[in-house]
Amino acid sequence: MILPKFAYAKPKSIDETIELYTRYEGRACYLAGGTDIIPLAKQRLVAPDIVIDLKNIEGLKAIEKNDDFLIIGANTTIFDLKKYPLTKEYFRGFYESLDETSCETLQMRGTIGGNILQNTRCLFYNKSIEWRTARGFCFKMGGAVCNAVPKGNICFSNYCSDNAVSLITLSAELGFVSPKGERRINIEEIFSGNSIKPFNLEPGEILTRIYIPMKKNSGAYEKIRVRGSIDYPLINVAVALKDSGGDVSIGGVGPAPLSYHIDSVDENSVEALAQKAYSDVKTVANTVLTPSYRKRMAKVLVKRAIKRALQEVK
């Protein structure tokens, strides 16, 4: 499958990037590692006039820290971030989600920024133009139906980032620059809850940095996939223990991760949380394996992740 035609630029600064984006009146896509956008372009799910490669922008690949935060440049690869000594020591759950992302070769290419801002996925969406034309266009493509759920009236595509869930449990913040200026928000605020357009981003907004509060957290990450590598999560759960309780986030099921806080990790609280998660999780037949199985795994993974996080404390 060949790519569609597009212009390509590799600016050296944020300002240059924004200038390009504005000049092309938004008919542009940002390129980091490319593991999300190249398949989408080949399938004609995106067709930008220009692809703006962010990899030359100074400073977006550095990892720094101060007393309060670990500051990760958005262009840092999953692999480099995984190998950074502090990651495993301070943020065990995040280390695990990085390690479980795809496979190691793709970890060396994909960036943490791209991993967070990946498009939602669905068996009926991530297909070639020919396949989709024969099937008929769905909500996410600008059509008027959901192909996965007959008579469905919303888009059910799934947000499948391995690492967003662990970052949520770490209360991470994201730094952006856009034509309108800079902002820094809690990671949970980027999700729109609408799978057709999953992120609350300004046009042209560039993710520059991820800020993680510098506090050692014991945590864990659990993922369901058919094979031991490469596959996206069919459902995933991240846990970070804090004080006597913890934060839990569940992804791979619908437009945005679910998140919970529990004040205590005693057996009853964990059971109650697992039950609530099971009840909240909504799955439909838009992945391999059955929706009832994925929903059921919410309960299993919540308990497993918390159990492992607690073991790590000991």
Binding site: L123, K127, W131, A134, R135, V226, R227, G228, S229, V288
Partner: peptide
Amino acid sequence: GFLLNPDLLEYKVPLACD
């Protein structure tokens, strides 16, 4: 009549780790 996994991501050929 639509094949939902005509690709090597969703058609699960076992990997070395499996």
